[in-house]
């Protein structure tokens, strides 16, 4: 102990210098937006690397929760569809409902590669062309919306994740029906931004944000997340809403690929209208 004190006294100048520099850099990283971003992005790189290394282990520990979620969703679907469904091996087919004219086909798939820490995140699925998956199909999980299929090969497909700054999703407030555009802006993998909700829409924190059903990709009313924070853009009269995503992309394992059967027809019709 005496040696330790002697060491401190002998080097007090240098230690004091170190102390003040550490305090200064603490301030720099905590109170300056630019420096904080640099700090966060480099630490994200480290955590991303570690996560990749240990993902297999983590997946194992999450099996229980995943199973629970799957069985819950199974029961839910069974209740919902009751005798309208028949089970065909790996996929569930919905009997064509000629009255509403809207039907989707769901195929289950497993996520085999995923990232949340990049600017453009993609998901790889273990089903491909062979299983009937093709470009522009929606990807959802039991918790909510996940992404859109981008490329397919014989046995695999990649999907553009919701956590990709290039993906824009048409979203709707479940309570009031106002719709806007949802986009991930990088940063936190739990939050995305919903823009284009008009100032008179009066959203409140905790409201559910769901898919609008206007696109030819997703069915209506698939949960995306809940409102976490509301900012009004003074000049433009639109809200800038922070949405807490319902899907935890770090835990994503099983998903369903949605095919809208008349997607092609809708797309073509929309295209001709645009050209007119």
């Amino acid at each position: 102990m005496r040696n330790f004190i002697r060491f401190i006294i002998r080097n007090h100048f240098f230690l004091l210098f170190l102390f003040f520099e550490i305090v200064s850099f603490y301030f720099i990283f905590n109170y300056n937006e630019y420096h904080r971003n640099i700090y966060l992005s480099s630490s994200n790189k480290v955590s991303g690397f570690l996560f990749e290394r240990f993902s297999s282990v983590i997946q194992y520990f999450e099996l229980k929760q995943t199973n629970e979620e799957l069985s819950k969703k199974n029961a839910e679907l069974r209740n919902l569809l009751d005798n309208k469904t028949y089970y065909a091996g790996r996929t569930i087919d919905l009997v064509i409902d000629t009255i509403s004219g809207r039907h989707y086909r769901y195929r289950s798939a497993r996520v085999i590669n995923n990232s949340v820490n990049k600017h453009f995140n993609y998901i790889t699925l273990n089903k491909g062309m062979k299983d009937g998956i093709s470009r522009d199909m929606g990807v959802i999980s039991s918790r909510g919306l996940v992404g859109v299929v981008l490329n397919t090969s014989e046995n695999y497909s990649t999907a553009i994740s919701l956590l990709n700054t290039r993906l824009k999703i048409s979203a709707r407030l479940r309570k009031t029906g106002f719709f806007g555009s949802l986009n991930w802006e990088g940063g936190s993998y739990r939050h995305a931004t919903l823009s284009g909700i008009p100032a008179h829409a009066a959203p409140s924190v905790g409201d559910a944000v769901v898919s609008s059903g206007y696109s030819s990709i997703f069915p209506e009313d698939i949960l995306i997340g809940t409102i976490d924070e509301i900012n009004i853009d003074q000049g433009e009269g639109f809200y800038d809403i922070k949405v807490l995503l319902s899907v935890d992309f770090k835990k994503l394992q099983y998903v369903q690929v949605v095919e809208k059967k008349e997607a092609e027809e809708q797309r073509e019709l929309e295209k001709t209208s645009e050209n007119d």
């Binding site: 004091l16 003040f20 305090v23 200064s24 850099f25 301030f27 720099i28 109170y31 300056n32």
Partner: peptide, 28 residues
């Protein structure tokens, strides 16, 4: 004294930082 040098350096820097909204930068 040397300890006073770094302490005064920190104080001066932090005060300038507060006015310039760059907390920690000038202090460092």
């Amino acid at each position: 004294p040397k300890w006073m040098l770094v302490a005064l350096g920190f104080t001066t820097g932090i005060i300038v930082d507060i006015f310039m909204n760059t907390l920690g930068l000038h202090a460092a």
